[in-house]
């Protein structure tokens, strides 16, 4: 299967990037500390990881059904978007070169996955674990709110309107197996590539003192991912702007609710259990 091949390549490349970034950004002592405290740390983060996993699984199970539902109740806004922003994306593609296409395709597929996975590891390695919890909740918020938007708004990207070239699919056609397996082509408003990257960039700013190198790396890769969504003709500028807004909201949600969520899922059930035991 072509898809399996693409996924194996993805896993291999991203793993290599993770190893390099770990060596570059996280110091040895921190890693040893993490190894010693791995169990309690993982237990602490389990509720938020669980929430993120639930959102992702729900997303993958309902994606196509949600799309069909969306055709029933949603607003088709492709024409409106195009009328507002016009030929910005094709204009951008006017600067395309072969090297840039290779770079941005790589960033869109591999750089993006790396950008999302690495901070999970890096924040697990911090003695202060709150950031990790905030980040996972923020991820879940991105996906959850993003999905809601996808049900309400139906929009095709510039490449599907055929006003922009689909540079990545022309250069690396197998990648469409992956993108069509994990997403639906009407899900472009807002850009989740943008919102998740911007989320990581905001967190990298918060942790710039702990991870100064990661801060620089995250800004460079994050900005490239955001730019690549337009350069490759996949998203409109408006999707990207909406993605940044979504990122901002998601970070706020992460910061506000990380503690509440952990309490709700760990302390509260324990209390209930105690109360139940008291009764009998």
């Amino acid at each position: 299967m072509v898809l399996v091949g693409v996924i194996l390549t993805l896993v291999a490349v991203v793993s290599l990037m993770l190893v390099c970034a770990t060596v570059l950004c996280i110091d040895r002592e921190q890693l040893q500390q993490t190894r010693r405290e791995l169990r309690p740390r993982l237990l602490m983060v389990a509720p938020s990881i669980g929430l993120l996993a639930t959102v992702l699984i729900l997303n993958s199970l309902t994606r196509r059904a949600a799309q069909r539902f969306s055709w029933l109740i949603g607003f088709n806004i492709t024409g409106n978007i195009y009328r507002v922003e016009g030929d910005f994306v094709p204009w951008l593609q006017g600067f395309a070169t072969e090297e840039l296409t290779v770079y941005f395709s790589f960033i869109y597929l591999f750089g993006y996955v790396f950008l999302l996975v690495f901070p999970l590891l890096a924040y697990l390695a911090l003695s202060e674990q709150r950031t990790l919890h905030e980040l996972t909740i923020a991820y879940a918020a991105n996906y959850g709110l993003g999905l809601l938007c996808y049900v309400i708004f139906i929009a095709y990207g510039p490449r599907n309107m055929d006003i922009a070239a689909q540079l990545m699919y022309d250069f690396y056609p197998q990648s469409q197996f992956l993108t069509s397996a994990v997403n639906v082509n009407t899900n472009v408003f807002p850009s989740l590539h943008t919102s998740l990257s911007a989320t990581v960039m905001i967190f990298a700013w918060h942790t710039r003192e702990q991870y100064p190198r990661w801060f620089v790396l995250a800004q460079v890769i994050g900005a490239s991912v955001i730019f690549s969504t337009m350069y490759l003709g996949i998203h409109w500028l408006i999707d990207v702007i909406a993605g940044v807004v979504l990122a901002y909201v998601s970070v706020l949600i992460g910061q506000r609710f990380a503690d509440d969520w952990r309490e709700l899922t760990t302390v509260a059930p324990a209390n209930w259990a105690r109360q139940v035991r008291h009764r009998f």
């Binding site: 072509v2 699919y169 022309d170 056609p173 197998q174 469409q176 069509s180």
Partner: peptide, 10 residues
């Protein structure tokens, strides 16, 4: 198959 280009590859 998601696109004609992938069909040709396959």
């Amino acid at each position: 198959v998601p696109s004609d280009a992938s069909a040709v590859e396959m």
